[in-house]
């Protein structure tokens, strides 16, 4: 009895140490980024790194003076919100049908598309959008980002739909519902937390996606993440400005994740157990 509790205690301590370690590994780059955004450029690259320094808002001031930051922010919001909405619009019914019919291979195809490197799609898309005269348009970014958001929505929602007892759908059928009405009136309200989780994850992934925006946007439609590339020059990099931009870019997803962290965890756990 004593031996077991002693083992448990050590396991508990080990868990705590591992959790702290994981936390440090995850948080360090973010803290580093935020601290660096309040340093002068030469301090950012100083070795050994300076933990104690006089903070400055110079990087943020430079950012607002040299870059149309609000315009890029607006572009990011348009592209991310639209691609998330499009991903939800296509992904939620797809996940429902995959769960209903138990045919998951189309969902696997979308996952494979998501896992493939973006560069694989880039050239064909570039050619396609150029022919269509859509390079530099919001639509080219929204459509390409939907390839990122839709698989996320499908794979987050699939276990949520699987989790609803099949008899509930059958009862709705007997009650006179068409499949679309079952989806709208029964299935969707029952996976509301899944919808929130998938929307947030899709938003974050789309917001942070760099490659498509870099190639398919122009100066009018450039997103924040692509614009931040401007701080990396050929000869030198404005690290302070880059860190300030990165901090501002990371802020919306961070705030979003903090607000809905309880939902997020339960949603992801459900996926882990059922998926």
């Amino acid at each position: 009895m004593t031996e077991v509790s002693e083992t448990d205690r050590w396991m508990g301590r080990l868990n705590t140490v591992l959790l702290i370690l994981a936390g440090v590994i995850v948080i360090t780059p973010t803290v580093w980024m935020i601290l660096s955004s309040f340093k002068f450029s030469h301090e950012v690259t100083a070795y050994p790194p300076k933990l104690f320094f006089t903070p400055t808002l110079a990087n943020y001031a430079t950012l607002s003076e040299t870059t149309p930051f609000l315009h890029y922010g607006f572009n990011s919001i348009v592209v991310t919100a639209s691609s998330t909405a499009l991903g939800m619009l296509l992904g939620a019914p797809a996940a429902f049908v995959a769960s209903w019919t138990r045919i998951t291979w189309p969902a696997i195809v979308t996952l494979v598309a998501r896992m493939a490197p973006g560069t694989l799609f880039l050239l064909p898309w570039y050619v396609m959008f150029r022919h269509a005269g859509m390079i530099g348009s919001y639509w080219s970014l929204i459509l390409t980002h939907a390839v990122i958001t839709m698989p996320i929505v499908i794979w987050v929602l699939l276990p949520f739909f699987d989790n609803i007892p099949r008899s509930v759908f059958e009862a709705a059928q007997v009650d006179g519902c068409s499949p679309f009405r079952i989806f709208r009136r029964i299935a969707l309200p029952l996976v509301s937390s899944g919808l929130a989780v998938s929307a947030i994850l899709a938003f974050v992934f789309s917001w942070n996606y760099f490659l498509f925006a870099l190639v398919l946007s122009n100066s009018d439609t450039k997103t924040l993440i692509a614009a931040s590339f401007n701080f990396i020059g050929e000869g030198s990099t404005n690290w302070g400005g880059l860190m300030a931009a990165a901090t501002l870019i990371a802020l919306p997803p961070l705030i979003l994740a903090t607000i809905v962290q309880r939902w997020l965890i339960s949603g992801l756990t459900l996926g882990a157990v059922k998926g």
Binding site: P165, S167, V168, E170, V174, I186
Partner: peptide, 12 residues
Amino acid sequence: AMVFQDYALYPH
């Protein structure tokens, strides 16, 4: 009309 084994009521 059908009454199911697990009742299949709409939880929401």
